[in-house]
Design a protein around this nucleic acid. Structure first.
Length: 738
DNA sequence: CGATACGTCCTTTTT
DNA sequence: GGACGTATCG
């Protein structure tokens, strides 16, 4: 069949497999997405399955969309009725239809990690516990772990009755669950767990889905957790003993153990699904021989693996460049310089990525990239949807969608200011707690509470605003409704009256959010408010990055980089305690193995060129900390490395650094056509000051609203008339006094 | 009630 | 070095 002609033998064997469970062990870059898309196309084209009989689970929505597209290119069938998406989005789909069967309202909302934290905080306060002893984040992740292990609050409390601290953790867990229920809200874990219990308690519902989905495919199987495994088994294993479960994964790329992912799911697949066929894909089509050998040498230090060895037909390629620097600023400098050098080799920015272990590393890199005029985009980190103004608008949306949502209620009852202060809110909260009501329900009975008449009036006014919006919701399209929210609540007036730099950039953000809603409306048929809310809360960081931002260097964590590839990859911060991250007193072997897998993932993102950098000193919380080279660099055989840079940096005197800077300066200037001469610019520092009008080459006229730093490090924030607020390095910005 | 001023904690990684 | 919470004052 010519559909499968372009595949190699192993890939074809997997794609054309008929009935029965299959585990495809697919090393990095061995074409697993090809196998998945071709398999689906094959199933449909040969008539083995109708699109609606296929359930395909991916790790991100982006991966789902790409797969859909690629299948569409392979065959000429309508595949809209196929289910493809992340575990979470598929569970939402199931729950929207069936959640009433397990005692929730259909209009439930999804709480993200921030919402969860607020809720945990509430619980700690309500139980009058010491905030210092009960760390919100620790409790939150503990609750998450317990939920995923399916340990109930009662059981946990009983098991730990003699331990004061743990017993309280159990009580917090219990209270948290109670509050979630009152708010008719589900957290990320609930989406999976509630689906599981729905299936367990309603066999008929489960049977429907078992019947429907003849073929179940799961990508990134190594990163599934216990609950996800159970879901796959439930839907995949039919009553007649048949199970057409097709999972693809790579135990060497299992990097979500901390989130409950269980590497044993993939290691034990053959036990779990009797008669499973195992197919190994070992030919890599991505990286050079040297990069691959380096990756292999590192990962073989792990014990928890099935074992495989990637190989390639590709040429040997370049040596891996190791860069040793003094600190994170120099690291950023060296990376930026190397990017500019690579640009010379006909590579574009979009072919390059900088990977790091923690999001906080992006700042130093970013500063340098701005300074060198290198376009970049950051995946994750400062999250658009995490901004106050966006969260506020979302809270309004969520409250109208589900009035029981207490977290959202609290968030916006006094934003914009409505003269409803802490005391009033506490009173409502107490009343709500005593009567087992949600805050919104309690607010209706505000007259029964001991409050001043003006407070009562303010609360009632707030209620009527929300009530009106609830009516409007059903009469308007999503985007119209969002506009109504913005105006009716007074939020728009609040932002516009602010008239500060931040205020204006908030207006811009809100507008951007609205255009995202319009976009959503046009793109999807299912485009109600609840669809939109589910959509935005389930987007992954990778999903959120702007595809349209063209020709940019990508900055992202190694976790976010999973599944992606670039010609040139920089891995930054390769120091002990950084990558691998080792927290003070736990030297768990399993943790180190996961870190090593993470490094393996990072290395195998590179197609042609790989840079590894480490700093001898790094700022942590504003303290200088000495660092040593990561063990992972030492695990790569020396013959694959080019450590020349090390010699450049043998001396740590300032003079030596100057020399290196000089060395790169000439090259940098070659490419910086938008960057005027450095010296000339430096003089601007003296001339310009706050409030001055300036003219920018690209952005036109603007006003300086902030200046930070001195001399060549001065940063200016300029409010442009049409282009918004930008922060620039004064010494490099193409601006002049207007 | 709300604005401002300082102290404390923190950081893995994300659906 | 920054987000967030508490203290203090207008």
């Amino acid at each position: 069949m010519d559909l499968l002609n372009s595949l190699n033998d192993k890939q074809r064997e997997a794609a054309s497999h008929d009935k029965g469970p299959v585990l495809v062990i697919a090393g990095a870059g061995t074409g697993k997405t090809r196998v998945l898309t071709h398999r689906i196309a094959y199933l449909i084209k040969t008539g083995k399955a109708h699109p609606r009989e296929i359930l395909s689970i991916t790790f991100t929505n982006k991966a789902a969309n790409e797969m859909k597209e690629r299948i569409g290119q392979l065959i000429d069938y309508n595949i809209d009725r196929m289910w493809i998406g992340t575990f979470h989005s598929i569970c939402v789909r199931v729950l929207r239809k069936n959640i009433e069967k397990i005692g929730y309202d259909k209009n439930f909302v999804i709480y993200d990690t921030d919402d969860q934290k607020l809720l945990v905080k509430d619980c700690i306060k309500e139980m009058d516990l010491d905030v210092k002893k009960y760390n919100v984040n620790a409790i939150r992740s503990r609750i998450s772990n317990l939920k995923n292990s399916r340990i109930s609050p009662d059981k946990f409390i009983n098991d730990n009755y003699t331990d004061f601290y743990l017993r309280n953790v159990g009580e917090l867990y219990s209270l948290y669950e109670k509050k979630m229920k009152i708010s008719n809200a589900l957290d990320f874990d609930d989406l999976l767990i509630k689906t599981l219990s729905l299936f367990e308690n309603n066999k008929d519902v489960l049977l429907d889905y078992q019947d429907r989905f003849k073929y179940v495919l799961v990508d990134e199987y190594q990163d599934t957790n216990r609950v996800q495994y159970l879901l796959v088994r439930m839907i995949g294993k039919k009553n007649n003993g048949e199970s057409n479960v097709f999972v693809v994964g790579d135990e060497d790329q299992s990097i979500y153990g901390w989130r409950g992912a269980d590497i044993h799911n993939i290691l034990d697949f053959e036990k779990d699904f009797k008669g499973a066929k195992v197919i190994k894909l070992e030919q890599n089509y991505r990286s050079t021989d040297i990069i691959l050998n380096a990756a292999n040498s590192v990962i073989k230090n792990n014990s928890q693996r099935k074992g495989k060895n990637l190989w390639t037909d590709f040429e040997e390629g370049e040596l891996i460049r190791v860069i040793e620097v003094d600190n994170e600023k120099e690291e950023a400098f060296m990376i930026a310089s190397s990017i500019l050098k690579e640009i010379k080799n006909d590579l574009s920015y979009s072919n390059m990525a900088i990977l790091y272990r923690t999001n906080s590393q992006s700042r130093a890199l970013e500063e340098r990239l701005i300074r060198e005029g290198i376009r970049y985009k950051i995946v994750g980190g400062l999250k658009f949807y995490g901004r106050k103004e966006i969260k506020d608008i979302i809270a309004y949306l969520m409250l109208v969608q589900n009035p029981k949502d207490n977290i959202s209620f609290r968030r916006i009852i006094n934003v914009p200011r409505r003269k409803i202060g802490k005391k009033t809110i506490d009173t409502i909260q107490t009343y709500a707690n005593n009567n087992e009501l949600s805050l919104f329900e309690a607010a209706y009975e505000v007259r029964q509470m001991e409050l001043t008449s003006s407070a009562v009036k303010s609360v009632e006014k707030f209620i009527s605003i929300i009530e009106l919006l609830m009516v409007k919701k059903d009469a308007m399209s999503l985007s119209e409704f969002m506009q109504a929210i913005y105006e009716d609540t007074g939020y728009k007036a609040m932002l516009e009256s602010e008239d500060t730099i931040e205020g204006r950039s908030r207006v811009e953000n809100v507008n951007e959010f609205f255009s995202a809603a319009v976009d959503f409306e046009e793109r999807y048929e299912q485009n109600t408010l609840e669809d939109f809310l589910a959509h935005i809360s389930l987007l992954s960081d990778v999903d959120k990055t702007d595809e349209k931002a063209n020709d940019c260097v990508t900055l992202l964590t190694v976790h976010s980089a999973k599944g992606l590839e670039y010609d040139v990859v920089f891995i930054a911060g390769l120091e002990e305690k950084m990558f691998p991250i080792i927290r003070d007193n736990d030297g768990d072997d399993e943790d180190i193995e996961e870190e090593r897998r993470l490094f393996y993932v990072a290395v195998t993102r590179a197609k042609k060129t790989l840079y590894l950098s480490f700093a001898n000193e790094r700022m942590v919380f504003g303290n200088h900390m000495y660092r040593t080279k990561s063990r992972f660099i030492n695990e790569i055989p020396f013959e694959y490395l080019d450590v020349e840079e090390e010699r450049t940096y043998v001396s740590k005197t300032k003079q030596k650094k100057q020399e290196t800077k000089e060395l790169f300066k000439g090259e940098i200037d070659l490419f910086s056509d938008i960057k005027p001469k450095y010296e000339e610019n430096n003089k601007k520092t003296d001339k310009l000051c706050m409030g001055d009008k300036v003219k920018h080459k690209a952005w036109g006229i603007g006003t300086i609203v902030q200046m930070k730093g001195e001399g060549e490090d001065t940063m200016v924030t300029i409010a442009f008339e049409n282009k918004g607020i930008k922060t620039l390095m004064l010494s490099f910005a193409p601006i002049e006094k207007a």
